[in-house]
Design a protein around this nucleic acid. Structure first.
Ligand SMILES: [Mn+2]
Ligand SMILES: [Mn+2]
Ligand SMILES: [Zn+2]
Ligand SMILES: [Zn+2]
Lengths: 149, 149
DNA sequence: CTATTTTTGACATTGATTTTCATTTTCAAT
DNA sequence: ATTGAAAATGAAAATCAATGTCAAAAATAG
């Protein structure tokens, strides 16, 4: 159940805050809750626009800082796709994944490929590289967008 | 021979300028020549710093515009690696390639993998995506840097 | 409730990129 | 070589997302 996942994460956030001597505020909670519920790749701006509808008294700064906090705490990761803006997504207890990005509607589909990972390791090995991270992004038209163009 | 490649490219640039009714300036030539000669992944700033040593009267603006022109004309491509700054590299009549990037010294190694490309196409197909472009970047320590750390 | 510490909102700053505009240079036609 | 129209240039300003500052507000322990 999505709800349960979200609640588990919120509780863990709460524990993290307590352990770090940070305070648990309603605004922070509102932001985190929405962030986990949406479970998407959102820019600060985008999340802020959604947060505003729930509580118009939450500022951009607060959304920005909440996301950075979640990232530092390991509950979120950020990445930049080709449009250059930083996007955050919740970290799930799943491994690395990559993305298919629609250049028309912006839809993002996640995928994993053990085969590709294996080939990457081979390539790194060939150049005596110590591989620490990587990113693979596939751009094009999604199923819907390739019809209507 | 590298020189010949470079000269061929400069001539082609000249032809492009003529066809578009643009003018051929010495400054533009100096910038393009250096850009093709270096044949690396350079930010505007980096190329500007190198250009200054050849002709200190060339401004940042001019380097910036020259690179954009080269990109529009198809002689250069730009990309952003994880540091977020836009880098340009000459387009050679070779296919798509990907990058290994050292997170310590910044060295960039190019590679190609038909196998990975094939897997990517399979993945795109699985999601009914029309694949147009992609980027794959591998980050880690290069051969030298993994020793001295 | 009070004291202490953290959080917040508004605004400022940064850093890279891009645009603006007055001046200079190119180039084709004299 | 001279000239005039169009493009290129340099310096400065504008933009834009990301981040920093700080006084006021809110949270938590005692
Ligand atoms: Mn993702
Ligand atoms: Mn390259
Ligand atoms: Zn789409
Ligand atoms: Zn290195």
């Amino acid at each position: 159940m999505k709800i349960n996942v979200k609640n588990r994460e919120l509780k863990t956030v709460r524990r993290y805050l307590y352990e770090k001597g940070l305070k648990h505020s309603l605004k922070r909670h509102t932001i985190a809750e929405l962030f986990f519920r949406e479970d998407k790749h959102l820019s600060v701006e985008e999340l802020y626009d959604m947060v505003k509808k729930i509580d118009p008294d939450i500022s951009f700064s607060t959304v920005y800082r909440a996301l950075r906090l979640l990232e530092k705490a390991g509950f979120a990761v950020s990445r930049r796709f080709m449009d250059g803006v930083k996007r955050f997504e919740p970290v799930h207890p799943k491994e690395h994944h990559d993305h298919l990005i629609c250049i028309k509607c912006g839809k993002i589909i996640e995928f994993k490929s053990k085969k590709i990972e294996k080939l990457q390791k081979e390539i790194a090995g060939k150049y005596n590289f110590e591989l620490l991270s990587y990113r693979l992004e596939l751009y094009g038209y999604c199923e819907d967008c390739k019809k209507h163009r």
